[in-house]
Design a protein around this nucleic acid. Sequence first.
RNA 1: CCAGCUGGCCGGAUGACCGCUGCCGCAAGGCCCGAAAGGGCGCGGGGGAGGAAAGUCCGGGCUCCACGGAAAGACGGUGCCGGGUAACGCCCGGCGGGGGCGACCCCAGGGAAAGUGCCACAGAGAACAGACCGCCGGGUUUAGCCCGGCAAGGGUGAAACGGUGCGGCAAGAGCGCACCGCGCGGAUGGCAACAGACGCGGCACGGCAAACCCCACCGGGAGCAAGACCGAAUAGGGGCGGCAAGGAACCUCGGUUCCAGGGAUUUUCGGCCCGCCGCCCGGGUUGGUUGCGUGAAAUGCCUGGUGACGGGCAUUCCAGAUGAAUGGUCAUCCAGCCUCAGGUUUCGUGCCUGGGGUGGACAGAACCCGGCUUACAGGCCGGCUGGCACC
Length: 118
Amino acid sequence: MEHILHRRDFLAAAKGTTLPSGGVLVQMRERSDGKPPRIGFTCTKKLGNAVIRNRIRRRIREAARLAMPQIAMAGHDYVLIGRASAEKRGFEALKKDIISALAKLHGGAKSQRTEQDP
RNA sequence: CCAGCUGGCCGGAUGACCGCUGCCGCAAGGCCCGAAAGGGCGCGGGGGAGGAAAGUCCGGGCUCCACGGAAAGACGGUGCCGGGUAACGCCCGGCGGGGGCGACCCCAGGGAAAGUGCCACAGAGAACAGACCGCCGGGUUUAGCCCGGCAAGGGUGAAACGGUGCGGCAAGAGCGCACCGCGCGGAUGGCAACAGACGCGGCACGGCAAACCCCACCGGGAGCAAGACCGAAUAGGGGCGGCAAGGAACCUCGGUUCCAGGGAUUUUCGGCCCGCCGCCCGGGUUGGUUGCGUGAAAUGCCUGGUGACGGGCAUUCCAGAUGAAUGGUCAUCCAGCCUCAGGUUUCGUGCCUGGGGUGGACAGAACCCGGCUUACAGGCCGGCUGGCACC
C-alpha cells in the first residue's frame, strides 16, 4: 500500500475523524478521488527515545501491512499514531486494534469497498 | 588462593515464514503516478547500524560568501618540555608537584621584583604586622597593680614572618652551631623542561592570575536545510507581434481624406494608469535530481620506533534513508541471575553434579573523517603489585 509522504497530507488527515483504539490512534480523511488508499505513520517524541519510537513505528507498520489491505477503502488516507502501549502489546491484539478502528470509522461513512479486493 | 592495579577486546547465537531499501546482472517492451522534472511496477544474485551511531564540546576535509598579498585592534581560545599527526584543546614519552606499603593514580602546571585589586569571619595581630593569656626581672599599698624585657608555649584562623636538636640566657629569640628546608650563584649532565656537586646568605621575597592584567602562540564568516541542476498550472516582471470591426467629412456615388479601446490631468502634444490573445526571455514556490561515499579506508603479513605512530607488499569494496530503510512474528539454544536436592571442603557458603524458574545493558547512521565527554547487563584475554600457603 502506498505511503503518505508529504506534510500537507498529514495535516489534512489530522483535520479528519480521530479514533483511539488500543495501541494506536487512527485518523481518517476522505479524498473522494477513487484512487487507492494511502497510509502514514506518526510517533512523537513523547513516546521515548529514537529506539523506542522506531520499534513502535515498525510494529504498527507491520501490523498495518497485514491487516489493512482487506479493510482499507479507496479514496481514503489513514494516519496511524503510535501510543506508548504499542511497544508491549501483543501483535495479534495490535492488528485487531487497527481492524476494529477502521470498521468503526467506516460505519458512519458510505460503504465503498476498495476495488483491489482479492 | 585472597585482595588490588592496569592494557586490550566482545557486546547474544542458529533456524523458519513474511517484509523494507540500495547495488550488480538479465530484460528493454508494456503499464501506472505526476502539470512537468522525475519516480514506480518483473526475475536472479549479493549487501544493509554502533562502541558509543549519543552529547554536538574541539580539530580537519568539502561547499558557498567576503577579501589588495595581508597586517593591526577588538574579541575568543590555548598555556611545563620533546615527539606523533592533515590538524587539535587529542595521543605518546619525559620533567615538576601531590596521594598510595606497592602495582599505579591525580594535577589549566607561563608571569605575583610591570601595575591595579582582594584576603570575609575569628583572632592581640593579616602584609614595610602584632602582644590577649603567658614567661622573666624590678618596684609596691601583695588573691592584685605598676614599669621594663621576651616572642619559645597556649588560643584564633585557609594562612601567624622557617623546622628539629644542642648550646646560650633573668626569661627568651638564627642570638650561636649541626642537619633539613628556603634564597642567590653554579662545575657538570640533558635537544629541552629540569636535575644538581660545591660555595655563599641567618632567613629576607605570604597567597589568589579559575579577579583584572602582562607575555607567547592560534583563529575571516556560515554551514549538506552548504552548494549545483531540472522545473508546472496560476499570479506577477520584461520584450515582440496582433487585437480593428467601424465612425465622421467631402464628393463626379465611386472613391478620397481624417479619426480611431477606456480613464484622469481645462484643451493639444507628451508622458502616466487600466484591457484581450499568441510567442519568447529571465527570476522562482510546491516538488524532483544531485551532492552521497575509493577513503588521513579495511584486513593480513613483514618492518622502524621505549611509545603515540610511521613505512613496504598483497588482497578487498564494506549502509546510504529523506514522514526518514536496515525489520516483524515465532521456535530452539548459550551466557548471567534466583532457587531446590545431593556430594565435597583449607570452613570462605567456595566448588562439582542434577532439576525448576527467570532472562537480554546503554542505545538507531542523517555530508564525511580524527579526537574528547557521557551512558552501559554481562563476558573474554594479557601484564603487574601486596599478602598467605606449599615445594
